[in-house]
Every structure is written in structure tokens, then in C-alpha cells.
């Protein structure tokens, strides 16, 4: 018998093993839902799949009688717009500050500590400040995500950039490179894959801050909808929304991973 660490599932086996927990969760839900609905047909806690279907039908494919919009798509575009702008801004801040802190000792000494301090502020604690200062509009919500995500990316990139072998930096100087040329041709290209990894890792917190901001002050958005229908115990709406958010996050993660492989083919060589 080979050691456990040397036993690997085949391709089909891995697929089956991966699917098993999902099927198990589904089966447990169906069983529990059936049992509760049999005892009380008006139970709202674990709705049947038929009522999920009805909710999805009315939110995704029918116009809302009050606003005349398809609510699910409207919410999706609003939320995705916010998260996309916030992530783009965070990536830009992270790239510029991370590289400068990592490469230029004077910038590291002057900005490094303040970034470290800001990254320790719980973003939700300053959400009221953002609403007071920036109003209840889009700016406050996007700023919250940036405040939560950007410092993490800055620090991660600064660390990675500082970890580039000193041999590379010296070699570049002996090839006559200026500081700007080193940043442009040596550091920046090697920072890209790390930035994409960093974005993937911060996706979870970005969604957290988005939904928190939408729950508190918004008129549309996935987080807003979930917290709105909570008042009616509308689990038949909340659960499909949660699944939908998960799918969107999963897709964004996949997209970032694809971009990394396509844009930085060298990054995974030699591992």
C-alpha cells in the first residue's frame, strides 16, 4: 500500500470527488426542505425549488411592476459597476505605491508606515465617516471598497517587489539602466502577475465591503436587494441571489487567472 500522500485521483475521479460535496449539500437541503414543507406548507425558511423558480422568473425575466425594470439584471449591473471601478482604482493605487515603496528606499521610509497603519483600520468602522463626508451616493460605496482593498495590495506588491533578487537590480544597473528604466522594464513586468494574484485574493473582501455598503445606503444592487427582502423572510429570493453572487465572484476569479496565464506566460515556468 502506497503512502496516502502518493495516492492521486484520476481526472474523472477528481471531478467526481469534487462534485460529491455539492451533491451532498443539495440532497440535505432537499430532504430538510421537504420535511419542513410537509409539516407546514407556508414555511419560508427552506423554500422548495419550485418557489426558487418562481422567484428567479419574476426577478430575472419579468419587469418589476413598480419600476419597470428587470430587478436581478439591474442589481447585477449596479453591483458589478461599483466593484469593477473600485478594483481598478485599488489596482492602480497598489501598483504605483507598491512599486515605489518597494523600489525607492526614501518612498518606502516615508509612505510605508502610514500605509501599514491605514491597512489596520477596519474599513467598516469608517463607513459612517465616508457616508457623512462623501454623501450616500456611489462615491462612498466605491471608496469603502478601495479603503479596504488597496492597502492590502500596496503592501503585498511592495513586499514582492522588495523580494526581487538583488542580483537583478545590480545587473540592470551594470547594463546602464536608470531608476525609471529599472521600474519600467524590470520591476513593473514582474509585478503584473503578483498584482493579478493580489486582486484574486482580495476579491472576497471587496464583495464583503460592497454588500455591506449596499445594505446600509442604496437603492439598487445585489446587497441592497438581499437586505430589502429580508424583511419579508423571502428566502426564495435571498438564496438564488447568494448563489448568483458566488457565481459572479467565481467568474471574476477565473477571469483574473486567465488574464495572468495569457499576459504573463513566463510567470509559472520553472516551478
Amino acid at each position: 500500500m502506497r503512502r496516502l500522500i502518493n495516492q492521486k485521483p484520476g481526472k474523472g475521479g477528481a471531478l467526481l470527488l469534487g462534485a460529491l460535496p455539492f451533491l451532498l449539500i443539495l440532497a440535505v437541503y432537499l430532504f430538510a426542505s421537504d420535511a419542513r414543507l410537509a409539516a407546514n406548507p407556508d414555511d419560508k425558511l427552506l423554500p422548495s425549488f419550485a418557489s426558487f423558480g418562481d422567484a428567479i422568473q419574476s426577478y430575472a425575466f419579468e419587469e418589476d411592476p413598480r419600476s419597470g425594470e428587470h430587478l436581478l439584471w439591474n442589481d447585477t449591473f449596479a453591483s458589478l459597476g461599483r466593484i469593477a471601478i473600485a478594483l481598478a482604482a485599488s489596482a492602480a493605487i497598489g501598483l504605483v505605491l507598491g512599486i515605489l515603496i518597494g523600489v525607492i528606499p526614501f518612498v518606502g521610509a516615508s509612505i510605508g508606515p502610514v500605509v501599514a497603519a491605514i491597512s489596520m483600520i477596519p474599513p467598516l468602522a469608517i463607513l459612517p465617516i465616508l457616508f457623512i463626508v462623501l454623501g450616500l451616493g456611489e462615491t462612498a460605496k466605491i471608496t469603502l471598497i478601495v479603503v479596504g482593498v488597496a492597502p492590502v495590495i500596496v503592501r503585498d506588491l511592495a513586499l514582492r517587489v522588495a523580494e526581487l533578487p538583488s542580483e537583478q537590480m545590480i545587473k540592470a544597473q551594470t547594463l546602464g539602466a536608470s531608476t525609471w528604466q529599472i521600474i519600467l522594464r524590470v520591476v513593473l513586468p514582474q509585478a503584473w502577475p503578483r498584482l493579478l494574484d493580489s486582486l484574486r485574493l482580495t476579491l472576497g473582501s471587496a464583495w464583503l465591503f460592497l454588500i455591506a455598503a449596499e445594505a446600509i445606503a442604496s437603492t439598487e444592487g445585489l446587497g441592497y436587494r438581499i437586505f430589502l427582502v429580508r424583511r419579508y423572510l423571502a428566502m426564495d429570493v435571498i438564496l438564488p441571489y447568494v448563489v448568483w453572487i458566488t457565481l459572479l465572484a467565481f467568474f471574476m476569479d477565473w477571469l483574473l487567472r486567465r488574464v495572468r496565464t495569457l499576459a504573463c506566460p513566463w510567470a509559472d515556468l520553472g516551478r
Partner: peptide
């Protein structure tokens, strides 16, 4: 360091992304 003095280290001195 400058362009008048070249260096070859034992390793790590190539640019992996090029």
C-alpha cells in the same frame, strides 16, 4: 554600479520575464 563594470553572478541575474 554602472555600465563601465559588467557583472556575472553565480545565478539569478537574468530577467525571468524576458
Amino acid at each position: 554600479p554602472g555600465a563601465d563594470r559588467g557583472i556575472v553572478f553565480q545565478r539569478y541575474s537574468l530577467f525571468p520575464h524576458l
